[in-house]
């Protein structure tokens, strides 16, 4: 599956290389759009010293970890949630008769290297936040772990969204509400929201495990929900559990596939 994915990504990157100017403009655009989010955070802190008890560097840390995980997942695997287009155009049939994993083919299809712009912006924000926070090594090791877990969580969400489209071909936006919407929620400390939302994001859709729960551990903050701080370390477990659910849903979706008329 990894080999298939790498081969196809390389093919699409070469295809994209035919349009160099377009690549440069779109990469710059993705970078700037990431920068707009930062501008919003800057505007907020121009008016207040803290957001739900978090200082600017801490908010940037929460933003950077979630955004880095989301942008990476979106760049590498986000096309999985475009499967309804493949279903409608009949191109999924073509993928199904190749001797390689369908998921890898859908994920790699139309791979857009320009999305690296947003990843670079997110990494820069996280870098600045870490430089200002001075987190001891005893907790800093969790930072790469939470980013990787976050990538797995968002990728699983994209996959679940894709699997849902085997049932609801006309509703890819339903899935986007959870993937892109989830990424937006995570850009701020979750304590700014109603506790019931935070509970939902902890126990139902484990989006709180992308940056909020492990972030509280890294920042050494008490949990407003009152959960012990070691629950922040459960991110990899939450990511694997969601990945397993997503894999099963994807399989069921392929099995239920109905194809098009001709």
């Amino acid at each position: 599956m990894i080999r298939t994915y790498a081969l196809l990504v390389w093919a699409w990157t070469r295809a994209a290389a035919q349009y160099r100017v377009s690549f440069a403009l779109m990469a710059a655009g993705a970078f700037v759009i990431g920068g707009l989010d930062i501008a919003v955070i800057w505007v907020i802190f121009a008016n207040t010293d803290s957001l739900a008890g978090f200082g600017p560097a801490e908010v940037m840390f929460l933003y950077g970890t979630s955004e880095l995980a989301f942008a990476t997942s979106d760049m590498l695997f986000g096309n999985v949630d475009r499967i309804s287009q493949h279903i409608k155009a009949g191109t999924l049939d073509v993928m199904l008769v190749r001797p390689v994993a369908t998921w890898a083919q859908v994920a790699a299809d139309r791979f857009g290297p320009h999305r690296i712009g947003r990843v670079v912006m997110a990494a820069a924000v996280l870098g600045v936040a870490l430089a200002r926070l001075d987190i001891p090594l005893g907790r800093a090791w969790m930072v790469p772990v939470m980013v990787v877990s976050g990538i797995v969580i968002f990728t699983s969400m994209f996959t679940l969204g894709g699997a849902l489209q085997f049932l609801l071909t006309d509703a890819p936006e339903v899935a986007n509400a959870f993937t892109y919407g989830g990424a937006m929620l995570n850009q701020y400390p979750l304590s700014v929201y109603d506790p019931r939302i935070v509970q939902g994001l902890t126990y139902v859709l484990p989006l709180a495990f992308v940056n909020w729960r492990p972030g509280l551990y890294v920042l050494d903050r008490p949990d407003p929900l009152g959960l012990p701080s070691w629950t922040g370390l459960l991110s990899p477990a939450a990511a694997l559990a969601l990945a397993a659910v997503a894999a099963l849903a994807w399989r069921a979706g392929i099995r239920r596939y109905r194809s098009t008329g001709s």
Partner: peptide, 8 residues
């Protein structure tokens, strides 16, 4: 498939 290509 006559109606769609398997090529990139």
């Amino acid at each position: 498939f006559g109606q769609r290509t398997t090529l990139w």
